[in-house]
Design a protein around this nucleic acid. Structure first.
Length: 423
RNA sequence: GGAGGGAUGGCAGAGCGGACGAAUGCGCUGGUCUUGAAAACCAGUAUACCCGCAAGGGUAUCGUGGGUUCGAAUCCCACUCCCUCCGCCA
């Protein structure tokens, strides 16, 4: 949510920022609704002040044994009716304003390159070279089938297309990746591990920005009105909802492993083979709640934390900055990490690290006190995958394949897997 | 799923139709005292919105939403959450 004050005080700044994202919004409706809201509040507050005054006086007179003119009460009755009708008008206006406001994306940071879509994303740097092999490489779906560690047909039998099941050393490798990443971020990067629910209430998933606009991408349990999380970012954003944190509590670094559930309606027909794009996958997510002053540096350190995982695994990767047209709804500034997958010969997005500034903090009412006497202010939140498991699994299988058809396990994972090759 | 109890400020806890944004205690902040600290004493200590350049003023908030009333923390209705017991269950 962006601030209504900002829209009121500097609409052109907002209009221009949205235009850079490819959104045309004149803000006219929101501004005129806001104006009538305030007009109604001024009138209503004055009526309430009057009512409070008269009611108090009636009480005092009664207490002193004086009579109260019934016509006076009659008059106040109509004042009361006027008040409740204005209350309703104001509430209705606020509902509409909030709905409009909640559909406006975050404003891009001024340093974000302006562009239309992913084709305008600058590649900022690459780590490692694209590896060369002296033998023919297989894509991961063939490797998985041949080694009997990925079972796509049976995944589909259970739940339909875009579901997969793992088996044997495949499952073990997945589990090792999750455990190793969690340990790495908690031990080396100072994150606190949290375990959170995978289903959340509507107000929580509104807070992270997935509702109301992106309900299509979510699984929803109608019976209890719970939403399956598309990422751990959702419940972690909600952890401190409605709280006012002390300055001394910041920054907070969280890391969580959760399954992620995504309907991916919009992506129908894309990446249909293998486990690159699926409806349910595991992910380790990093999350930061920080002092706004520091959020820009925190984004770079978050990105570094995610990169460390790629480096430790010996993967070639590149950093792509997302342009104004490609950053997500909640983000002000984002970087993608893409690892090279030698088998299908493409760059796989394994992480997006984003500074969401105060956008989620507003939606979820998450504030801090800069000092004991100051007014509460919104914190900044950042999130980044650290990392998405299936795509890392793909990268390992495809990049670590040997001429004899076996897969070598990266050194760092071996204490976790208990084996060094899959054959 | 069945039966009961509960939800008040940072915490504990009073209040059960008017003087209550709310007693009291604890905590916290500032001050006095002290070489310093502790103790004691004094003062302060919620959030949002609206008007205002500001100083300041107003409105709302006692789990949430509705209702009764000139007036609701207090009465009525619905919901949510928490606790206890019984049943069921990984």
């Amino acid at each position: 949510m962006i601030s209504i004050d900002l829209i009121r005080n500097n609409p052109q700044l907002v209009i221009d920022a949205l235009a850079n994202r490819g959104e045309s919004n004149s803000l006219e409706d929101i501004l005129s609704l806001d104006e009538s809201r305030r007009k109604n509040i001024i009138e209503n507050d004055e009526l309430k002040r009057h009512r409070n005054e008269v009611s108090k006086s009636i009480g005092e007179r009664r207490a002193n044994g004086q009579d109260v003119d019934p016509s006076e009460i009659e008059v106040m009755k109509t004042v009361g009716e006027k008040i409740s009708s204005l209350d309703n008008d104001i509430k209705e206006l606020e509902t509409t304003i909030n709905d409009l406001l909640s559909r406006i994306p975050n404003l891009p940071d001024t340093q974000v390159p302006i562009g239309k879509d992913e084709n305008d994303n600058p590649i900022t740097r690459q780590h490692g070279e694209i590896p060369q092999y002296s033998f023919a490489l297989e894509p991961h779906w063939d490797i998985g089938e041949r080694l009997d560690i990925i079972d796509l047909p049976r995944g589909a039998k259970l739940s339909g297309s875009r579901f997969y099941s793992l088996k044997g050393l495949g499952s073990k490798l997945e589990r090792a990746l999750i455990a190793w990443m969690l340990d790495y971020h908690t031990d080396k990067h100072g994150y606190t591990e949290v375990s959170v629910p995978y289903m959340v209430r509507q107000d929580i998933i509104f807070g992270s920005g997935n509702l109301p606009k992106f309900g299509d991408n979510l699984y929803h349990d109608h019976e209890d009105d719970l939403w399956l999380i598309p990422t751990a970012e959702v419940p972690i954003t909600g952890l401190h909802k409605d709280e006012i944190l002390e300055m001394s509590e910041l920054p907070k670094y969280y890391v969580a492993h959760t399954p992620c559930f995504r309907r991916e309606q919009a992506a129908a027909g894309r990446d249909t083979r293998g486990i690159k794009r699926v409806h349910q996958f595991h992910k380790v997510e990093m999350y930061k709640i920080v002092d706004p002053e520091t959020s820009n540096q925190e984004l770079y350190s978050l990105l570094n934390d995610a990169e460390d995982i790629c480096k430790e695994l010996g993967l070639t990767y590149r950093i792509v900055q997302l342009c104004t047209g490609d950053i997500s709804f909640v983000s002000a500034k984002s970087f993608d990490i893409e690892v090279w997958a030698a088998g299908c010969e493409e760059w796989l997005e394994v992480s997006t690290c984003s500074n969401c500034t105060d956008f989620q903090a507003r939606r979820t009412s998450l504030r801090y006190k800069p000092d004991a006497k100051a007014r509460p202010q919104f914190v900044h939140t950042l999130n980044g995958s650290g990392l998405a498991i299936p795509r890392i699994l793909i990268a390992i299988l495809e990049n670590y394949q040997q001429e004899d058809g076996t897969i070598l396990i990266p050194e760092v994972l071996r204490p976790y897997t208990g084996f060094d090759t899959i054959s």
